[in-house]
Design a protein around this nucleic acid. Structure first.
Lengths: 214, 214
DNA sequence: TCACCCTCCGTTGTACACAACACGCGACTC
DNA sequence: GAGTCGCGTGTTGTGTACAACGGAGGGTGA
């Protein structure tokens, strides 16, 4: 057992992940008591985590009913996507990092993983890799505020893609993702964070278009 | 007594206001029990409010010590200001509102109030009017996500100005603020939200420069 | 005189009991 | 038979006692 803060973050992170990977699909009723028991704590600290998830719009607590995982709809989230695109682009101009060998190695790692995914594509593994690659994208700017806001907005919309993938062509999506990583790798190797940011923005935009059509 | 949610927001809003108006200067130790008594509740719901303020960086709770109002430093906040400027500008291009007579009337109201402030300037009244005018600026975009993020960042930095005003020329600052409102009024009357957003961005930028010199 | 320790006090963190509330089901009434 | 009331059950919200912890102050020994 660590100190309270890190333990809280662990629980928060785990629940957020379950919600965004649809382990808890929209409409699921979470029981405070059950979750508290699972994480080996009591309702009080767990409620603090749920309160944060509620502030971020991932769950909704209703007195006398339960804590319910919210539903997400692409049309309602268009505003969020608009902002996410702008923030993605800003990552290239607001305090961009100096690219080191470590950065290049990281993007190569993602390239390898995306190729492996192409050979054995599953929706869940794809979503997880996408999430990890998003976090890598955050590290391209040193602006902490930008990172925080981007992350918050990302998790607000992360479920939409996974909810729609059954109606889309998984192999084609993986292919597009692979190419995004390749393009990003080219930009990073050339030390061009600005280009990497624009690539990211473009792919968010295209992804929204594909999602709306499905 | 209203329902839990609105009551919680009332307490949150009040505490945030006290912190940002320096009723609780940085370093102040807040007592959960005292505050709970003041708002006629118990520690439990009050702690939820403090938890949110802690997530937003306005206070810090330390086990065994207390809940302490954080200090803010302009140099640490430069990243936040950078992002705030970008968001201010985006308010003009991301889902800008259609300007109605109501909007024009609102900005006229601020103009009048700023003129009144010029006649009897106090730092606190200035800070309050500035805050109100900021909230007006938020209404210029229909993008809810943009509004939320802008507000969050604004309150992160709001105290810096008030902390430095004693070392600056209050009358001159009021004058600049009056002109900002006048310029905004011109833009709004012409139906040009984009220009209003750029004016706002410019004034944030200039304000940061003045603050760093003081 | 200084360094160390120990105890006391106030604070935040946690656990738990109870209140407030929503929903469903069954009985009762018309 | 339909509508309505009331109660039981399960949930979140609140209050409160206690545990965990940090710091200050005084005492003690070298």
């Amino acid at each position: 057992m660590q100190d309270a803060t890190s333990n809280r973050f662990r629980v928060y992170s785990e629940l957020r992940s379950r919600i965004c990977l649809l382990d808890y699909p929209p409409g699921t009723r979470l029981s405070e008591e059950t979750l508290a028991a699972e994480f080996g704590t009591s309702r009080t600290p767990l409620r603090r985590v749920l309160a944060r998830l509620e502030d971020e719009g991932l769950v909704q607590s209703i007195h006398g009913v339960g804590t319910i995982v919210t539903d997400v709809d692409i049309e309602e989230m268009l505003h969020v996507y608009d902002l996410r695109m702008e923030l993605a682009q800003l990552a290239g101009s607001l305090s961009p990092i100096d690219i080191t060998d470590q950065t290049i190695q990281a993007v190569r790692h993602f390239h390898n993983q995306s190729e492996a995914l192409k050979r054995d594509p599953t929706a869940r593994a794809f979503a997880q890799l996408n999430m990890a690659f998003f976090h890598f994208g955050l590290t391209l700017s040193n602006n902490v505020a930008l990172r925080d806001m981007s992350e918050r907005l990302y998790y607000k919309t992360a479920r939409i893609w996974l909810k729609s993938i059954s109606k889309m062509d998984l192999a084609a999506e993986v292919d597009i993702f692979c190419r995004e990583i390749e393009e990003t790798q080219n930009a990073i190797v050339n030390g061009d964070t600005s280009a990497a940011a624009l690539i990211r923005r473009a792919h968010i935009s295209m992804c929204v278009h594909r999602l709306r059509k499905s």
